[in-house]
Design a protein around this nucleic acid. Structure first.
Lengths: 167, 167
DNA sequence: TATTGTTATACTCTATAACTATA
DNA sequence: TATAGTTATAGAGTATAACAATA
């Protein structure tokens, strides 16, 4: 078990990694934002699946998944087939166009990472992958229960400040 | 230098870590979202600073920083003092209330991480911190230039699908 | 003219709740 | 009644551009 200072630092780095994610997002094709890219990537990696399964892999609510899926389906990158076993379900499947798009995504992210991580060793990359995977596992599906402590709401001042000076 | 498959996997994990971040965000006090928490944390760690410096540390546009700062200032957690050396600038400083809030944030995130990472060794946590820090450094301030390749925009079908069945 | 911040606007991601169709 | 998926709505984060004040 680690100490408090370590956890604080980890929280900091976790927050900071957002900058890296945004950087990755900037090189995506204009009509393929991160949400769409995640859908395509997971379908490419795990094969055909139902909405609920995809939502689980994305670790977001199914309503969110539904939107992302509608986006990629509208562009012809996936098809939604009725599930013969359960007419409520839909089986998602990449189309040839979707595979092409996936290749393009792979090219771009790989290119960016190869450039940025040029001085990383093979082993370091693997270590990072391993630890991040473990981190995910440790958080599991825990959609952390409310848990909210007694919260001390501070009074809002709404100081409608204009430009510098003043307080 | 690592291989393509590794980079793809790293990209995947980078995307997936969002779930962990969201989990962390859920335990924050209601009026202190992640943006506010980041502002308080950085001010606590690096001391008083100007808007531009904070924007750099947050790795977001200054317009975004301005909003976050306005939020925490409105709640009395920081003060914006005029910079005697440059009247355009404002020096940000935590207030006693801000320090209290920062303590509360630390308690909550530490508690959550201690719970989720109960079976991690001290060393593993340090490794992850080290590698994530290195990752950040490798991406540096690189607000990755456009770089956009020739993009093949797919035709939008906008299949206004209702419920299952159909394609 | 260039820089520091603020504000308006727009886009993406996410969650909650209400709803349809099926189990 | 319970589950799979969709849609409407709202909140948070971010970026771009226009703007004010100062350098």
């Amino acid at each position: 078990m680690a100490e408090q200072a370590q956890f604080e630092e980890l929280a900091r780095q976790l927050s900071a990694v957002g900058a890296v994610k945004r950087d990755m997002g900037r090189i995506l094709p204009p009509d393929c934002p991160t949400g769409s890219a995640a859908v395509l990537t997971l379908l490419g990696r795990h094969g055909d699946m139902r909405m609920s399964k995809l939502a689980e892999l994305l670790a977001v609510d199914m309503s969110v998944t539904s939107r992302h899926v509608a986006h990629v389906a509208a562009r012809g990158w996936i098809e939604r087939h009725p599930d013969p076993a359960d007419k409520r379900s839909r089986i998602l499947r990449l189309t040839p166009a979707g595979l092409e798009q996936l290749d393009e995504l792979s090219r771009r992210t790989t290119h960016l990472l190869a450039e940025r991580l040029a001085d990383w060793t093979d082993d370091e990359v693997n270590q990072l992958i391993r630890l991040m995977t473990r981190l995910r596992d440790s958080f599991g599906d825990c959609r952390s229960a409310p848990l909210r402590h007694a919260s001390v709401a501070a009074p809002v001042l709404e100081e409608t400040t204009r430009t510098p000076a003043s307080t």
